[in-house]
Design a protein around this nucleic acid. Structure first.
Lengths: 219, 219, 219, 219
DNA sequence: CATGAATGAGTCTTCATTCAT
DNA sequence: AATGAATGAAGACTCATTCAT
């Protein structure tokens, strides 16, 4: 008599499952709100529940525990980002320069690069050392992203004009720039940071390494 | 007739004051141990005390509160690093290339760049968004370090051969590389990270931007 | 279409609010038990909780802090007493002698004058000097009570036969007698104190000041 | 070889004993300071030591424990007062009216009736219910004082003109007035209380009970 | 489903007491 | 004799989790 769930890959379909997914998503959102405002250490079940407009009991109903919710939140973050940059690359054509530009555009897209998201990301990263689960989730994301960046930069560096560029070093500089420049948003005056400026910095960085490959027009 | 205390510049000299400073330092060390092992959220006064081999009461005897200890720990970290890079620059001569190399050497000096220190640094950074005091302490450090890096890189970029290098973008890439490359140490297999390799990466990065200015010899 | 809540003046009516009020009242009662048995200094949240048959966490669920509970307890005491004597006066008719007798009757009513209540009252009074909040709460009670007593005694003293009675002095003697005679209950042998005897003492005192105004019958 | 201590009634005589007595007295004074300022609950060994200008260790050197110091302080208070009123009575001649006046004068003598002393007395009294030792010390004081007051008042009441005065009731009113009127000093505005006024109140009270026995001249 | 009252383990902090100097 | 650093038990408070409704 049990309902068939053969099509589970396509997402939950029974009303029950749909509600379950929706609630989990709401709680993850609320969790991000709380982390962004109060930090990881200041995030309590009560605050998450309040932000979600639900009661405290709900967390343990939809997640095994508070830390399961935290982990799911981190996973959600990682997934969103990975989906975004993979999509961007696949849409950017074959030129590695254009593909790198696409990575930059994704990294500083307002939907991914905003105070809330960056705050949460930062908070999790600070605890990676102490919580192995976090590290595992983050580590995978980075590995793939770096491999891809390395590939693109190596292709550019293979061109004769850029023979002096060390692909590994260039990749690491690029990756760290993209990943940590957003932290400027967390400073006291958020006005100091601007997405257009950030993209421009990255392009100018790439142009400094690979003259002639990147147009200097700011977007 | 009063005893001369001309050498007071060298720190507190009364035995009492000396003990006080020593204990505070021991507790800061123990605090770093705890943060490195258990994270900021997992650091309790009990763990700090245990790590220091003292009783729990001691923390509130030498620090106003647990958070005062944490702040002192962060301040200690920041001071150590600032002292180190300022000293290194002043010893490096006048050539901006040599001075940049000195910054790299300091950043990956074993006494400053090790799993413990980097873990602690990372943990604090993760909470900066939620704790304004942390941000203030960290922010000052960064501002000075970046200003100095900017100056050195601008000097190099002013040379005719490097006219295509954007100083701002290059500086940002450089400081982010130096500041965040150490995070690789926190990965599961710390064997993947090697101080010599890290220094090499940074030099190769600089050489990629400014060909001819940096010898690639050291590896 | 909204449900009418016209009778809200009569106190909280939603079940939730009712539970809240009931629990707060239970905790205040338990707090009085603890103070009576262990003193103010010996009253801990653990003891209060135990006396209430609840867990320690409950205190901070229903009161902002332990001291908020203590203050609420004192306030409860003060309110009860004020309500009682005001009611007694209003029911006692117009004769000041009868009204003073009513004040006496209230002061030594078993529901207000018993070992538990007097103990608690005494404990709070001992700390009024150090805790300004306590003083404020107690001070108001006294001011009103004394003003009323002064008025009644002054009326009696105005009668020709009692011209020699100093109203201020008589009032002060009267209120101190009423307020502190109950402390006899706290002595080792509580048998030494008897409510009937106490009332009799007060009446005899009034009769000594104002002969002929008070019948000595009741004993 | 032990020194003879036969004259111990006259006080300690060896230098050692004299120092011991002096220190104990200093600590009791400091203890009163602390209680007056911070209350009984806010009185810590550290505060007492600071007030005495000595170190914390000293308390346990001169007293068995903190509570032994507290008890000694209470005892000191009680002894001072008892010595004072017994002396006053013995110097007041044979007339009960004069002797009662002497009791009043002692009760409101500036050296016994001042904010500090009254505060301390009040604080102890508040804890009598919970600490049997306190009650015992206080109880003895009261018993003797009341017996004496009763005797004097009974003598007056025996005179024909005052036949309507109930000795017991009058005594109780008198005693409570004398003992608790000083509490007015603890109110917010200490200006409201004045020793001359207080003495006047007591005399006027006695004159109201026993017309013709007390001169109304305010001292 | 959802609530939120209730629990109690865990944390920080205070403070009387000890003891080496 | 006196100090005050160190201890650790005890207290108030927080908060993840449970469960009756």
């Amino acid at each position: 008599m049990k309902r068939d769930r053969a099509n589970s890959r396509a997402g939950p379909s029974s009303p029950k499952e749909r509600l379950r997914e929706r609630r989990r998503r709401e709680l993850i959102d609320a969790c991000m709100d709380s982390i962004a405002r109060y930090g990881l250490g200041g995030t309590t079940v009560a605050r998450v529940a309040e932000s979600a407009g639900l009661s405290v009991g709900i967390i343990n109903f939809y997640f095994e525990s508070k830390s399961a919710l935290l982990l799911a939140t981190l996973q959600h973050l990682v997934d969103s980002y990975e989906r975004a940059w993979r999509g961007a690359i696949s849409r950017a054509g074959d030129d590695p320069a254009r593909q790198l530009e696409a990575l930059v555009d994704v990294a500083f897209d307002a939907s991914l690069c905003n105070v809330r998201t960056v705050s949460v990301w930062n908070a999790f990263w600070g605890e990676t050392r102490a919580r192995e689960e976090y590290l595992r989730v983050c580590g995978d994301r980075d590995a793939a992203f770096r491999a891809e960046s390395q590939r693109l930069i190596a292709e550019l560096a293979a061109r004769e004009a850029h023979a002096h560029v060390d692909p590994e070093a260039a990749m690491l500089a690029f990756v760290h720039l993209i990943e940590w420049l957003p932290d400027w948003m967390l400073g006291g005056d958020s006005a100091a940071f601007d997405l257009d400026w950030a993209r421009s910095v990255c392009r100018r960085f790439l142009a400094s390494l690979f003259p002639g490959e990147f147009s200097e027009t700011t977007r």
